[in-house]
Design a protein around this nucleic acid. Structure first.
Ligand SMILES: [Mn+2]
Ligand SMILES: [Mn+2]
Ligand SMILES: [Zn+2]
Ligand SMILES: [Zn+2]
Lengths: 139, 139
DNA sequence: AATATTTTGCAACAATGTTGCAATGTTGTA
DNA sequence: TACAACATTGCAACATTGTTGCAAAATATT
């Protein structure tokens, strides 16, 4: 599977800038999800902190990345592999956080279950986050 | 059902202080979950911000309240109704966040499902958060 | 009531996130 | 390629959230 940085940016009507190319590249290469701080470290002093915030926000709005609700309430982001479009995410997959290495995985082929809610409650989104030990840290 | 503030504090070997009584009372009276800011507002200038942080931390450690992972990554707390003990939480119920009124509900009698994880992954905790519109805001 | 222990408030700091605005970079057109 | 229109960036300044050390105050123990 190929992922073209430039193509993705163009497809979403975003102008091609150094920060967008670099940050999107980090996501494509990343094994798991990235926190804002990860990006700040991995891109050195290349970009201003504010630019990273704004770029992440733009990517989320465009449906290029999605946020992950973590049990420690820190914000993480990962590439959308589903057909997400502007203002319309479809990332209904389970997430896994390793307590040992801290990696957050998108379990893309495990979909979130339907939950039977009490009378009168209507669901628009379901997030399922599992914590534990990942395969790499299992030994 | 009765909930004795003092009893709960004693049972957990915590000394009885004004802040602990007040903050625990806020949780007992609250409909949904509380954020740190909620407590800060509802208790006026009675206690220092730091005291609230420390009290919440203590309550979580003792198994009196539990944290809730929310889709907007803000920290919320709610009373443990299950038999949680020091360092051992059993709050395996679903949470619901209303997009309209912002209330976070503990759906105490809807338990989180078992998720079949990939080979080698081991789960220690499962959090399921549903967003949508609650019964009160349904009209 | 006196002492030992715990908790609190304060100050100082660190981390995270937001906004306005001028300078810079990008894009489409000539 | 050069220009104008437009979008993005970096900087500064600020707000919010969370952490730590320590002396003063409150609570528990004797
Ligand atoms: Mn994901
Ligand atoms: Mn709960
Ligand atoms: Zn791991
Ligand atoms: Zn509601």
């Amino acid at each position: 599977m190929m992922y073209s940085i430039i193509e993705t940016l163009k497809k979403n009507q975003l102008s091609i800038t150094d920060s967008r190319k670099k940050i999107l590249e980090l996501f494509v290469k990343a094994k798991g999800a990235l926190a804002h701080a990860d990006i700040e470290h991995q891109s050195g002093t290349e970009f201003d902190r504010v630019t990273i915030y704004r770029t992440l926000q733009t990517f989320v709005e465009k449906g290029i990345i999605h946020t992950i609700p973590t049990s420690d309430n820190s914000v993480r982001y990962a590439l959308c592999k589903d057909a997400c479009t502007e203002g319309h995410h479809h990332d209904n997959h389970v997430h896994f956080m390793c307590d040992v290495c801290g990696t957050t995985y998108c379990l893309d082929n495990i979909t979130t279950p339907d939950v039977k809610l009490p009378e009168g409650f209507r669901s628009t989104q379901t997030d399922l986050v599992v914590s534990g030990v990942c395969a790499k840290c299992a030994n």
